[in-house]
Design a binder for these strands. Sequence first.
DNA 1: TGTCGTTTAGA
DNA 2: CTAAACGAC
Length: 464
Amino acid sequence: MTKVVIVWFRDDLRLQDHPALYHGFFHAQKNGYQILPIYIYEGGMGEAARWWLHQSLAVLNDAIEGYLHTYQGDPVTIMTDLTTRFDVQKVVWNRRYTPQGHQIDDQVMAFLKNQNITYETYPGTVLIEPDRILKSDGSYYRVFTPFYKSSYLGKDFEPPLPSPFLNTKPSTKLFSTDLSSQNIDVLPSHPWHQKLHNYWIPGEQGAHEQWHTFLKHGLNGYKDGRNVPALPHVSKLSPYLRFGNISPRIVWSSLQNSDAPLADVNHFKSELGWREFSIYLLYHYPDLPNMNFNRSFDHFPWSFNEELYIAWTKGKTGVPIVDAGMRELWETGYMHNRLRMIVGSFLVKNLGIHWMHGRDFFDDCLLDADAANNNAGWQWIAGSGADAAPYFRIFNPLLQSDKFDPHGMYIKKFVPELQNASLNFLMDPYGYIGPAIYPRPIVDLSKSRAAALQAYKTLSSKEN
DNA sequence: TGTCGTTTAGA
DNA sequence: CTAAACGAC
């Protein structure tokens, strides 16, 4: 049997700055082994994310000349099968930090140990692993700013690793057999994803092109421009980071070398910090997807109205800025950060619907859907999260609209029915008449705001 | 990384 | 009269 080193790709579908691949490669080279690169689809991904995964796998497979082995199912079962068909010398992967991922990796490690197969794991998807940052009393940070200050602000990290295939033809180092690879079926069945091709080029090269475009044209002015959804001051790197098409270390190091204004550079770094903070929170509070981080919210009187919820998902709430955000999601699989806050606040505070419903919808529709970021984000906007906005911090979508999309350019871009509507109507659909085909607002903003505040009040009085 | 009603400085 | 400043929620 061929002696192989298995490189297990997970949320790190790239060749550059991939520690497991890099070290696995040189271990194999030194000992005359072949490399067996594998990916295992473990399920549990939304429709949009699966499209991105499918594309990323295809790109990675091309980059290594078709030698990627893909499987579907339980990793222990698949590893068991692989060890019967290959002389596995070692298994390497980059660590992950979700509760499920962690548990599965423990099982795989126990299995390999039992088989006397060595394995090596590496940090590769975060700048700093979550167990490395604690407060002086040994507990974990619950607030972003001190978390970020303690370990990221003004810091530098190890330089990224190159692809091991820079001077080597992949096929001379990789092992392939037609028998070993399954065809996995991750592509969503309905054709929605087809238009995503108009907006995105998933994969490692796409990531670098996107990033360099942003460095050149978007970073200068980022700090303020990032809040204006009609402007190109967002990196749109989130799906690439989610699937590891690019590493946060590559991003951070090119920021170090950027000559953009320091305020912009530092602000972008802090956004990477938020990504790390979400991963960190989920690691230390594994119930983040199932439980309010602030447990006093457990008694909050949510109400679920299906009609209102569906109107929200479809972007037919009659509030232009909210609908524009939801339509952007349908159209592109992505939503601008400012809009995520606006539509989230609207669902939770104006419609009174539990944040978990919003979370589930985002999980299914966002290309960058990720347990850590999505749950941390929704808990933040609901007010139940870490470092959360106090519950009474309720966004007024009309003020947000006026402040961040003053000319209605973003609204018009994504809501075709409002192409010819007056600016007055876009900024105040309650006070002006809009096109007949566009719905009336489904909720009274000031009444629902007052109701939300009232509900929050009963909550805090129960606490006492 | 909020909103709103009220106060206050200044044209 | 307007805009900035402030504090309560």
